[in-house]
Amino acid sequence: MPKIKPLLIPLAAAAALAAPLLALAHGISDADRQRMLDGGLLQYIGLGASHMLTGYDHLLFLFGVVFFLTTFKDIAKFVTAFTVGHCITLIFATFYQITWNYYLVDAIIAVSVIYKGFDNNGGFQKYFDIKSPNLLAAVFGFGLLHGFGLSTRLQQLPLGEDQTGILLRILSFNVGVELGQIAALSAMVGALALWRRRASFARFSFAANVALVYAGALLLLMQLHGYQHDSDPNGFRFPAQEHRHVHEDMDIEKTTDDSRNTLN
């Protein structure tokens, strides 16, 4: 495909522009925490839905999963496998407080995005001369991973002490995730169905999945960078204490000139 390579530079630039949005996926803000304290189960449903709709790594992976699926039966089968997978880890990991550094979890989730774009473009056949791994098993396995990523965020919230109450909050959050997933998938499947009717789908489907690989790679690098900051915050330039020392050396607080405050 001789016309594909020139497209890679603008696609990479577009993915780079989207990278700051990817980094913000799943964050639990102070406002969200307070809202959970003040509200009830409906708040957890709303938060779950908003997390899925702004969870760019989850959405990119799902986009890759449904990209070439054309029948409702196939879409339902693979989406169900993904859903069962992320429900298992979201519920059980949160309830039993099994967690890990969320930057590392999200870094592995980024690998799932790379994997799907690579697989969609026949990468295993082209570069390794082997068949693609079983797609249903891969989607289920990555679903487990994505659910664990959601769990690491949910565990940042005040879930309470009562076991029944904790379970209800987890299930409410999970219901919200599923509602958000349904909304996102409806838009994706509808847009892809319309695009397949156009000649441009055949021309640009390869490029679209290359962009998916780029987006996953950028997300991977960003999450690894975030992990470095998280594990060794003073290992980077301008740690807080050093920054304060610079200000002291410059005597920054005494640089005002009060003589300029009056007119002569």
Rank of each mutant, 00 (worst) to 15 (best):
N120W: 03
G160D: 09
H146F: 02
K5H: 12
R169S: 14
C87I: 08
I108Q: 01
G64L: 06
R33T: 14
L144M: 07
A215H: 02
W195I: 07
G147C: 04
P20H: 04
F68L: 13
G48P: 10
Q181D: 04
N261H: 06
N101Y: 02
N134K: 02
L17D: 03
L135G: 01
G55R: 03
A211P: 03
Q43T: 15
F72E: 12
R198L: 14
H146M: 05
G235Q: 10
K3A: 11
M36A: 14
T89A: 06
L145Q: 03
L24T: 14
Y227A: 11
I88A: 06
R260A: 12
Y44S: 12
H58Q: 04
D230M: 05
R237A: 13
A208P: 04
L159P: 10
F148Y: 10
A107G: 10
L59C: 05
P158Y: 04
A207C: 10
F206A: 10
A184Y: 05
V139Q: 05
F118E: 00
A193S: 15
S112Y: 05
L194Y: 12
D119C: 02
E161Q: 14
N174P: 00
P10Y: 01
S50K: 06
D129H: 13
L21K: 01
A137I: 07
S205C: 06
L24G: 09
I130L: 05
Q228H: 12
I45Q: 04
Q43S: 15
V189Y: 10
A191P: 09
N101Q: 06
L221A: 15
L22V: 10
N134H: 08
V246Q: 12
H51K: 07
F68H: 15
Q43M: 15
V210I: 15
C87Y: 02
P133G: 00
I170Q: 04
R197L: 13
E178F: 00
Y214Q: 07
L224I: 12
I75T: 10
D129N: 12
L168R: 11
P6N: 09
T71G: 09
D74T: 13
G226K: 08
G39A: 08
D258P: 14
I114P: 00
H86M: 08
G143K: 04
D162H: 06
V139F: 03
H51A: 04
I182T: 07
I252F: 14
L7I: 06
F142N: 08
N134C: 00
E248D: 15
L53Y: 06
L167W: 03
L159K: 03
M1P: 10
A93I: 02
P158H: 08
A110P: 05
G27N: 13
H229G: 10
V105N: 01
V113L: 05
T164A: 11
A12C: 06
V113N: 00
L145K: 03
I88K: 03
D251Q: 15
H229I: 11
L145V: 08
L59W: 02
T54Y: 11
G122F: 00
L144Q: 03
Y227I: 06
P2L: 07
D257C: 04
L219C: 10
E253I: 13
P239A: 08
L145H: 01
G55W: 01
L62T: 11
